[in-house]
Amino acid sequence: MSELSTTLIHHPYTPPAGFKAISPPVYKASTIIFPSMAALRSRDWKHKTGYTYGLHGTPTTFTLEERIATLEGGKFCTLVPSGLAAVVLVDMALLKAGDEVLIPDNAYGPNRTFAEAELAFWGIICQFYDAMNPADLAAKLNQKSRLVWLEAPGSITLEFPDLPALVAVVKSHNASPGQAHPEGAVTALDNTWGAGLAFNAFTLGADISVQALTKYPSGGADVLMGSVVTNNEALQQLIHFCHMRVGYGVSGNDAELVLRGLSSMALRYAAQDAATRQLAAWLQTQPQIAAVLHPALPDSPGHTQWKRDCSGAACLFSAVFKPEITQLQIDRFCDSLQLFKLGYSWAGPMSLCVTYDMPKLRVVKPWPWQGGLVRFSVGLEAVADLQADIAQGLARL
C-alpha cells in the first residue's frame, strides 16, 4: 500500500487483547467484516449467535438485550428505536388482516391510535375493553382475537388492574374448543411503569412484556429506545423476523446510554417512588383537589391489586381538580410552576406535568370525574422544594 489514504483505511494494527473496564465497549457499525465467504454464508443471525449487519446487532446491543431480558425475568429481548416502536413491532409480528386486537380503554394513547389508524387500514379489527373488569374482556374475546394488550397501571389515570385475572380470562378463552383463534390469543403487557422492578410480568402470566427504555432504564431524558421481551421462543422468532424485515435498529451510542442508566435504575426507582408517594398523599389534603390517583393510595382504583402484586410504584400521580376550577385556571396553575416543567415523558431527573382532557380519551365507559386532570412526573429534586412549588401554584388559584 503505497498511498497514505489506503493505508489509513486498511491499517494493519490491532490493539492487544486483555483490556477490561466497568462499562461495556461501544461498537458502532453498519457493515460487519467477515473472514471468508464461507463464514458470510454460514453466519446465523436468527438466533443471535453471530454478527451479519448492524441492524441485526452488535456486541453492545446484544449485551443490553441480555441485561433487559434479565431485568424483566425473560429469556429473549429485542431492541427497537422507541417504546411506541415496541408496541408496533408486537402488533405487526402477530396480527394479520382479519385478526382482532383488544386494548385497554386506559392504555397508552399511541397504542390505541396506531390500532385505530394503521391496523384498521390493514384490515385488523380493534376493540377496547374495561381493564378493571375482567368480565368485559371475557365478553369481547371471540374467534378472531389474536392479541390482548395489558397495561399496569393505566396510562395517565393509573388504575391498577387484576393482571392474573385478565390473563386467566385469555387462557380460558384459548382453552375453549371452537372459540379461540387457531394460534391462540397472546397477552402483551406494557410494563414501562413497573420497569421490571415493581413486579415480574411473566410471573403474573403475560406472554410478552414491552418497555419504553426511554423512561427508567435510561433515566436521563436523553435517549429514545424500547424493548420486547418474552420467554416463548416461537413468539421471539416471530418478533425477531419482523424486526429484521421492517429495519428497526438502535445505535451503539444510545445502547451505551441505557447500559449506563441500568446501573442506578433501582436506586432512582426507589427514590422517586418515595418522593411521589409523599407528594401524592400531601396533595390529597389540598382543598382544590377532588382526587389524587396513585396505586399506593388506599382509595385509588386498583389499590388492592397493586398491594398484592407489586413491591413498589413509579414516579407518576394524577390530580383531579374540583369541578368549579376551570381548565383556564388549571392551565395557569401549570404555567406558574417553576420546578415542574411542561412536557411529556417521565422518569428523568427533572419533574414534569401536563394536562389531559380525559372525557375524550375514554370510549368504553364515561370518565367519572367532572374536573380537569393534571399528571405529575416526579424527578430527583428535593421533595420539600417540589411541594412548595405545587403549593405556590395552588395559591394562585
Rank of each mutant, 00 (worst) to 15 (best):
A271F: 01
Q272R: 00
D273I: 01
D273L: 02
A274V: 04
A275H: 02
T276K: 00
R277H: 09
R277E: 12
R277I: 13
L279M: 13
L279V: 07
A280M: 10
A280D: 09
A281D: 14
A281K: 12
W282A: 13
W282C: 04
L283P: 01
L283A: 05
T285C: 08
T285K: 04
Q286Y: 06
P287W: 09
P287T: 08
P287L: 02
P287Q: 03
I289R: 10
A290R: 02
A291V: 11
V292S: 09
L293S: 01
H294L: 09
P295Q: 02
P295S: 08
L297V: 14
P298E: 08
P298H: 01
D299A: 04
S300E: 03
P301L: 00
G302L: 06
G302I: 08
H303I: 01
T304M: 09
T304D: 15
Q305R: 06
W306V: 02
R308Y: 01
R308A: 09
R308S: 05
D309W: 06
C310N: 10
S311E: 12
S311F: 05
A314E: 13
C315V: 04
C315Q: 10
L316Q: 12
S318K: 01
A319T: 15
V320R: 00
V320T: 12
F321P: 06
K322Y: 02
K322G: 10
P323A: 04
P323S: 13
E324H: 15
I325T: 12
T326R: 09
Q327S: 10
L328D: 14
L328C: 10
I330R: 01
I330Y: 00
I330M: 13
D331L: 13
R332T: 07
F333W: 09
F333Q: 07
